[in-house]
Nucleic acid binder design. Structure first.
Lengths: 131, 131
DNA sequence: GAGATGTATTGACAATCATCGATATAGTCT
DNA sequence: AGACTATATCGATGATTGTCAATACATCTC
């Protein structure tokens, strides 16, 4: 039963989707990029990985995996796994130099994610202010 | 083995953590709010919940649960569960009016999250520009 | 070539999570 | 009071995920 079809009870008394405001509210955006954003967000929605991102964001350059591993009470394969998740999401760059591997933050990818989230906030403001 | 202790191989040839740049790179931030951020990010790192957030952000006002449920090929208890996750994370406000429950985006909480992520980006810039 | 070292991959396991059906709760209407 | 409706909660189940030990791979040194 859609909002606009309620015709009794308090439902119609409350001027929410009535008064011509946002009539298409019930239409889900079905944003085609939604799944990409979910992948990016899932990648950083983990305490270990977010802490790695913080390390990378605070560094002026790449960080050696060996310097990341020592910061956690986790095994080396586990850290390697988390780095792979970040890699697969495209959030980090990596480069092998000799025996060591260096990771750095992929700024454009991170910016796309934050831009998307900020866009959601401004969408609310616009919707609220446009009437 | 810490980065600064490498004394052979190509490791020391690359001027990354040397040259006095970001010597504390190996010190993880241990941000006390990190777990809060993980909770917020986990809440929206799901296709159903992110789509709900998109709906709420695009609406000028609260949205009735009944109008959310119809947009998904999911059972009503499942939608209710996802709304509870968003509620527990503090990302949405909700209000019961008569028989219906209305949800809206908790803008300050959402702004805190986006602000945190934007802060990570500027931290990179600062670190990179400060030398 | 042989040994040593840093990192990635594999396979297994326990924990978490998304989903569902059934049920409970709370409000409305007759 | 009783029927009805919208939403939340509960319990179970299959899928996903974080972690580890073992192993593989690549590179360096001798």
């Amino acid at each position: 039963m859609t909002a606009s079809r309620h015709n009794n009870g308090e439902r119609t008394v409350i001027p929410l989707q009535v008064a011509g405001c946002c009539d298409d509210v019930a239409t889900a955006p079905r944003n085609p990029r939604l799944n990409e954003q979910v992948k990016l967000l899932s990648a950083i929605a983990d305490p270990t990985r977010l802490r790695i991102i913080e390390m990378l964001s605070g560094a002026c350059d790449s960080i050696c995996v060996c310097d990341i591993t020592t910061q956690f009470d986790l095994g080396q394969p586990t850290i390697s796994h988390h780095l792979k998740v970040l890699r697969d999401a495209g959030l980090v760059n990596w480069e092998k130099r000799g025996l060591w591997v260096y990771y750095s933050l992929n700024r454009p990818a991170f910016e796309e994610m934050t831009g998307y989230l900020s866009g959601l906030l401004s969408a609310t403001q616009l919707a609220g202010a446009s009437r």
